[in-house]
Design a protein around this nucleic acid. Structure first.
Lengths: 250, 250
DNA sequence: TGCACAGCCTGACGCTGCGTCAGGGTCAAG
DNA sequence: CTTGACCCTGACGCAGCGTCAGGCTGTGCA
């Protein structure tokens, strides 16, 4: 793809891509004879990561070191991004609540103290902080340890993770064939097992989040196809089981 | 207050306050004989607004024009901030969902198309866009009309708004004294009326949001005091009614 | 075959929103 | 009256692009 196409796709300007090329953050993997930049699928992948980290407030140079770190596999980036995004969600929620409180206070003729007003973004140093926490944590042994363990996943444990997942899918398919109802206790137990697997290997996945994932299993045909390959009707079955399990816990 | 104190309170650096002074965005209302900046409560107020708008991605110059617009009363700023914050909340939620989808896809060995990956922040031009939409809308007649009407609140209708609020509070107090249960149909109807009032005059307030406000009525002593002044036990009564009403609708 | 027009290239300068010294007064405590 | 924390005003620097300028490329159509 040419710069213009990539820019349009990613929602950035051509100048931005030029800039990323110049500073070595994202250099297209090829050029035409005339010197035109040519971006490959892998380049798009990287651009995606760059934009996510940028949105999270990381300075570009740090983004480069993060993405070039050979000890960090893709899954680790996803986990980190997920964590930071959830932090931001929390913060935004707090700010919305603060504005609503202020409105309510106005209507009732109460005026809030300055401390109250500022506390929602006090200390935070808006976006920066998220990146800094990363940096700080990056220096502690504990984090490095856990991070290294995480990175080690894709080397040897990855097989085990995949195996566990496939094993569970197989047991679900068996249950389906045996006529087990997805919203029965047994069906929900299987769904719960799936949720726990995500928690253990990937990220903290509360029932509500899991329910959203469940919906995706029937809405996105590629996920559907993967389950249908194990057993016809399994996508719908799993989706229902997950929802029922979430409702049971909620 | 001195610069250092203000800076600590608001979570910004002294340099930032110097900068805001220099560009005329926020000049302290006084100076000591020695030239020290002295910030008043009104200055803190303004700083608060500045930081909110800044966080929302507005360039400082635009923040200045917004805050110096004489036809914009405080309530209008709150409504705008509220709207923009909710937009951001939505966007962040979408990004979290996208990362989760990507994780799930990885685990199942599916790979997403570039289009899919970028769509969450495609087009958006991260923060900037929020401000731009403002600008664009600011040019349409419809918006200017509604905006002017909104601004007119605090001039004459403000009395009516206050009146409506007090009237409702009085009727609630009467209900309480008459022994009406807060979670009875009558109690919930009163709560619903309160919610509608917020919708009409301030911002779109779905039942869930209203429930959160209800909790505040008993948690924040100043809100509690306002209600207790109308009738002892009213704060708890209103809170319960609001929650019941939200549950009824949810 | 040629040309018009969109798209690509490489400098180079500009702008915002501060961070970061430098060099020098101020004030409260001890 | 001194020490250390705090304040002042320049002045320069830096990230992350926006925005020309000046020139080559590629293609659809006459």
């Amino acid at each position: 793809m040419n710069v213009g196409e990539v820019a349009a796709l990613a929602g950035v300007t051509v100048r931005t891509l030029h800039h990323y090329d110049r500073i070595g953050l994202l250099s297209p993997s090829g050029r035409t004879a005339a010197g035109y930049r040519r971006y490959s699928a892998a380049d798009l992948d990287r651009l995606h990561q760059v934009l996510l980290y940028r949105e999270l407030g990381f300075p570009l140079e740090e983004v480069a070191t993060l993405l070039d770190d050979p000890s960090a596999d893709p899954a680790e980036h996803l986990r980190r991004q997920h964590r930071l995004l959830r932090d931001r969600l929390e913060r935004t929620r707090a700010m919305v609540a603060a504005v609503e409180k202020e409105m309510e206070a106005r209507q009732m003729g109460i005026s809030l103290t300055p401390q109250e007003r500022f506390e929602v973004f006090g200390e935070h140093d808006p976006e920066r902080y998220e990146a800094e926490v990363q940096e700080r944590w990056g220096d502690t042994d504990a984090y490095r340890e856990s991070s290294r363990r995480a990175a080690a996943y894709s080397k040897e444990d990855w097989v085990r993770i995949k195996g566990e997942g496939e094993d569970l899918t197989r047991r679900m398919a068996e249950a389906l064939r045996a006529g087990v109802a997805p919203d029965s206790a047994q069906g929900m137990d299987l769904a719960e097992e799936a949720r726990q697997q995500i928690c253990r290997w990937f990220y903290d996945c509360p029932p509500q989040v899991h329910a959203a994932l469940g919906r995706m299993y029937v809405e996105d045909e590629r996920f559907t196809a993967t389950y249908e390959k194990a057993a016809p009707g399994l996508a719908q079955w799993v989706s229902t089981a997950v929802q029922a399990n979430a409702a049971r816990q909620g």
